[in-house]
Design a protein around this nucleic acid. Sequence first.
DNA 1: AAAAGTACTTGTATTATGCAAGTAAATTAT
DNA 2: ATAATTTACTTGCATAATACAAGTACTTTT
Lengths: 150, 150
Amino acid sequence: MQVNYFFYFCSMSNQKRKSDCPINFALELFGDRWSFLIIRDMMFKGKHAYGAFLQSEEKIATNILADRLSLLEKSEIIIKSPDPTHGSKFIYKLTQKGIDLLPVLIEVIMWSSKYDNNTTTDMEFVNRVNRDREGLINELSDNLTKELTQ
Amino acid sequence: MQVNYFFYFCSMSNQKRKSDCPINFALELFGDRWSFLIIRDMMFKGKHAYGAFLQSEEKIATNILADRLSLLEKSEIIIKSPDPTHGSKFIYKLTQKGIDLLPVLIEVIMWSSKYDNNTTTDMEFVNRVNRDREGLINELSDNLTKELTQ
DNA sequence: AAAAGTACTTGTATTATGCAAGTAAATTAT
DNA sequence: ATAATTTACTTGCATAATACAAGTACTTTT
């Protein structure tokens, strides 16, 4: 009986690209069931620690979280740095490349809030997007950039 | 030796929802490696037939294509109808729900065109989005709605 | 010094995907 | 009119990805 260790070395990525289409480029970086949730947590929920991601209600498995964090770091969507106030912790932050995904997340939220009867979307947020999309994007984007450069 | 037929009955979906978060809602409907490419083909490449999807450069496997088409149909992002001029063919079209994903796809394209050095994105398209995002969305959206009601 | 927290790794089972082949109905070619 | 081809799949099986439970090494708190 042969056991397959491929996953533990490379997992999801490292396949050669299926195409250079921009939709496919994005899919190959975060088009799985978990990466986008990690990005959401960093973008909208102020989460920056491994343990915080683990606690999200979708309950990501710890090995998958470790894998996705390292892939997101490798593709420079996030950066990992030691927590200066806590020797055994790391801090994960969105890079500018990651912050620039904000419009994508916003459009996904707008779509889901329209079509999901059970959505937990904050309607204040939806209204704000409808009134002043650019302003909101700039505001949130600036906040994330400040976090990054702290 | 026990064989697992689960995939052939339900595959990807039919799990109970992991959460009612709008990002997760979208992920559970099209957050896999293929659904978004099928939507892209219908949205930007005028593809409407099974065989046309199979021929895309990313080379989706035929069983996966069949599965994703039925899931997208089940979630009412696309509709399937017999081809009136061709008895053995079907026509797949985006519903309004599917057409409303256009802003999401556009933001993904904008992001990838910025961060992928090898992108095949048409720069005319990027310029048009920068100049007149709303106008472009309305125009493309109207075209897709016309296709739908034909 | 012991217990608890943090970020993982490892092993194994289950689920999803990829690939090759086959099928049935409709269409086209001879 | 029959045979070959097209179209949209299904089936079987191999491989890859994910889930779950447990363990590890280092740090921090008690």
